[in-house]
Design a protein around this nucleic acid. Structure first.
Lengths: 326, 326
DNA sequence: TTGAAAGCGCTAACAG
DNA sequence: CTGTTAGCGCTTTCAA
């Protein structure tokens, strides 16, 4: 690889001048600029980002921490981020945390050491104090971390309400809920939204809610139990799409028809929901848009703008499909 | 962040000594080592990887180029790579190429500038000459690039054969194939495997093969046509799982029962195949294992070992599920 | 066994 | 408008 020195020699100027033309700052005569440009071209010179990073203490790199890229919700999120960043000249480091605080720290340490310019974090466990220690711009995506860290998410409680109401509208009379893990804010809020709708129904009691841990297999099990305990249930709101799939399987194994015997709605709007039979109704999040805007905000932060809008709540969309058509 | 200088001052030694103890090379007295260790501890010193990279011309970072992380085949691939690399102290840059040679170049350029140590590439279009220009260790994953670049993949033709034979075994008498894009090696090979099995059947003619472009929506369309043109078809081998899903949908919309009226088998073994109804039979690739070994080989290459095994062909597994149970 | 010093490639004063 | 030079934080000769 040619260095700035080579270019300087070739163009018979100093390295400072070369630096000026490639960074387009400082005065430089039109003729010398031409000479340098020719040199850059002939030597196929590409500035060395590492040297630049060392000096500038920034790397044009950001990190994104997600629980697990293998979970179908995250690829689109990551894609939205990466698409925007590459276009702004940033490179994206992928970090799979498995929701493990230990790993999250490790990744944050590595980022700091590499002068990573900022991070986009999807996490339930990271604390604001930890982040402060790194002194690095951060935005929270999908779940909030602290109210003064810019957050890009949806209103989960409202979404839960909409989903539950939809089931009511299509004529369900007893609605169960497969809930995500306790203490996970998004799961809790979706549950609260559901409660808002059903709490005062005379049929409602806590037995209508089971814990599915955002996991398909577990959802199959708990849905079976739920359905066997109460034959009157004719609607299920699952806390995410993966569990909705589990519920679908459970219904099938009990020889219940969806949507005739039981309507099912999921949450998130991942592509999978279009692929099942019957196709799943779901409360869709604008995943790509949300993540893109999170990336925009992070870049703004990195470039020193102060982002005053801390809470960025995106609208959800109720997608009605076969699984709730009755 | 504390620098090596700070540590040296604190420990009252030179930076060279500090460097020696943190890198565990060169002689250093047990007592001074202790002093330095204390200093490192007290100052919470973490060596700056950027400075180190500048000197060493390597960055403990690798890039992985995939067509699109949003495509369900790739997250697991990426995960396999990332898991291994983080554990070996490497960081992973994610690159979505959309199979666009322009973007591939761009990413490779960026990698070079950042002293990225090597790349794992999934691409149909990248040429060996291009890679040579970057003078960087590379391994090919899922599809080969050139016979002297280490490749980690399966035997697609053999897989195609197994899938087609399975359909025959379960009693299919007319088997159609939804083929992936022309000129894409993996698609062509799966097709050839299918041909190996059916070519000499008296019923076979080219009308049994349609082009689905590895795309679900397109697969729905072409499968419908295929099935409407020839009512005798009772088995379909789709070139990947996504298209198998499309085929499933097409069958459904024509009121054909799977597997009774028509058996369907996919290819790849992505998680989705477990979630459909009926569950899809598929020819499963050891995605995680394959990608992990690719990462291992890349690290070996980076560390200067010469990897002599260029062709690493992994075994596939026929997974029999409901969609071919008859 | 340790320290001084050069240099990785680049940027940004500063001087001219 | 251009060149000289001092670092950015680290590693590694080379000498002591």
């Amino acid at each position: 690889m040619a260095t700035i020195k080579d270019v300087a020699q070739y163009a018979k100027v100093s390295v400072a001048t070369v630096s000026r033309v490639i960074n387009q700052n400082g005065y430089v005569n039109e003729d010398t600029r031409k000479k340098v440009e020719v040199a850059v071209e002939s030597l196929n010179y590409k500035p060395n980002s590492v040297a630049r990073s060392l000096f500038k203490k920034q790397s044009k790199t950001i990190g994104i921490i997600v629980p697990d890229i293998t979970n179908p919700y995250f690829p689109e999120l990551v894609r939205g981020v990466e698409d925007y960043l590459i276009q702004k000249g940033f490179t994206t480091i992928l970090c799979n945390s498995d929701e493990d605080p230990e790993k999250e720290r490790l990744y944050l340490d590595v980022m700091k050491q590499k002068y990573v310019d900022g991070a986009i974090i999807v996490s339930n466990t990271i604390e604001r104090e930890l982040i402060d220690g790194y002194d690095m711009p951060v935005v929270a995506l999908d779940r909030s971390i602290h109210h003064d860290i810019p957050t890009f998410a949806i209103d989960n409680r409202d979404g839960g309400r909409i989903a539950a109401e939809h089931l009511l509208e299509v004529g369900c009379t007893r609605i169960g809920h497969i809930k995500g893990p306790d203490k996970v804010e998004n799961a809790d809020n979706r549950y609260l939204g559901y409660l808002d709708v059903v709490m005062h129904k005379d049929w409602f009691h806590s037995g209508y809610v089971v814990e599915g841990n955002f996991d398909q297999k577990q959802a199959v099990e708990v849905t079976k139990e739920l359905l066997q305990n109460d034959r009157e249930i004719d609607g299920i709101f699952a806390g995410n799409d993966t569990m909705a799939l589990g519920a679908l399987k459970a219904a099938e194994s009990l020889n219940l028809n969806v949507p005739e015997d039981i309507a099912i709605i999921g949450f998130d709007g991942i592509d999978l929901t279009e692929m099942t039979k019957p196709e799943l109704s779901t409360l869709s999040q604008p995943i790509y848009q949300m993540s893109r805007e999170a990336a925009e905000a992070l870049v703004a932060l990195i470039e020193g703008e102060l982002v005053q809008e801390k809470e960025n709540i995106f609208p959800t969309t109720l997608i009605k499909r076969q699984s709730t058509k009755r």
